[in-house]
Simulated assay, not measured.
Amino acid sequence: MNEFHRPIRNLLAAALVLAGASCSTIEVREDEPVSSWVARDSMKRKTEASVRIAGDHIAGRPVGQFFQRHSAILSDGGSPTLSVAKPGGEVQLMMPTTEGYGSAVSLGDGYFLTAAHVPVKGHGGLFCIEHSGRPVVRSYRVVWKDKSADLALLQADADVPAVKWATESALGNGASVFTFGFGGGEWEPSQGQILGRRPTGEADRHADLKLTAPVVAGDSGGPVVTADGKLVGIITRADYRWVRAFGRAWTRSGSHTTRPDIGFLEDVIAQDRASHRQ
């Protein structure tokens, strides 16, 4: 989750030029808060990684097109607005100045998975690109939340293709993953590996996976996928390891993804579908 202190504009073309992360040192000012240089370093790493993987493909699509096809941006306290210069032209997205924003991933049939700490109160808007290629902003409702696992399920009247779930066998330590989110006011990916996992959430039914991929504020709720485009989970938080000595800082920024109990989540969706057909 992240907050806007002023309106921002994001130009979306048919294909996005995307960027992500590297290992290097950064200078630290004596009076600079740790949180400031950690955020600066994480943004630098994500941007560098995004540049490196911009030409990569996932499931046969350029990495940007793949994520654009399945992702969404959400805000609360106001709805994003769209302006299209001409049919097939660039889309200008204006985010509201209130509350905050985050990212989400489509599970199909208008259902989206995001992080519970993203401000999803149900009176904001969700920006996505539908299956037809049309950019839209839709209102959404909150179907389910598990704050202890940092998961939330939303539903909107939007036709966005789902990402298929990765199998457990594909999620061993060292497996390569891609992340994607709207951190920094731009849709950008990063890349890393799975380092480990632990149970989380109510009844320990969900999984928290530690990653080497860097993320920044605003990426929360964005998709994490395997190299072949299968969904691992959603971005929930950044993870930093750092040492400060002799006026320099060596940092390694990573992240965490929460993977829901898929059977449990499918039951929640099925019950919600049934209740809204009545």
Rank of each mutant, 00 (worst) to 15 (best):
G201H: 03
G201I: 06
G201F: 05
E202Q: 10
E202V: 15
E202S: 11
A203G: 06
A203F: 06
A203T: 04
D204W: 09
D204C: 09
D204A: 15
R205V: 11
R205M: 11
H206T: 11
H206P: 12
H206F: 09
A207T: 15
D208P: 01
D208K: 15
L209R: 05
L209Q: 04
K210T: 11
L211R: 07
L211P: 02
L211W: 04
L211M: 13
A213N: 02
A213S: 03
P214K: 06
V215I: 15
V215F: 00
A217I: 07
A217K: 08
A217W: 09
G218P: 11
G218H: 11
G218Q: 12
D219L: 11
D219T: 14
G221K: 07
G221R: 07
G221A: 12
G222M: 11
P223I: 08
V224G: 06
V224H: 03
V225I: 14
V225M: 03
T226C: 13
T226S: 11
T226E: 07
A227C: 09
A227R: 13
G229H: 00
G229V: 07
G229Y: 03
G229L: 08
G229R: 03
L231S: 00
V232Y: 00
V232A: 02
G233N: 05
G233I: 07
I234T: 12
I234K: 03
I234E: 07
I235Y: 00
I235V: 15
I235M: 05
I235P: 00
T236M: 11
R237S: 14
A238F: 03
A238Q: 07
A238M: 08
A238P: 00
D239E: 08
D239H: 12
Y240S: 14
Y240F: 12
Y240M: 10
R241I: 06
W242D: 08
V243W: 03
V243G: 00
V243K: 08
A245D: 03
A245F: 04
F246M: 05
G247L: 12
R248A: 11
R248V: 15
A249R: 02
A249D: 01
A249P: 01
W250A: 12
W250G: 09
W250C: 10
T251W: 01
R252Q: 13
S253W: 00
S253M: 04
S253V: 13
G254R: 01
G254Y: 00
G254L: 03
S255N: 02
S255F: 02
H256S: 12
H256I: 10
H256D: 05
H256L: 08
T257K: 05
T258F: 04
R259W: 11
R259N: 05
P260G: 06
P260D: 03
P260A: 04
D261C: 09
G263P: 00
F264G: 02
L265R: 02
L265P: 00
D267V: 15
D267S: 15
D267K: 15
V268S: 03
I269F: 08
I269S: 01
A270V: 08
Q271L: 14
D272W: 01
D272P: 11
D272N: 13
R273Y: 01
R273E: 02
R273I: 15
R273W: 03
R273T: 08
R273N: 05
A274Q: 13
A274W: 02
S275K: 14
R277V: 10
R277S: 14
Q278V: 13
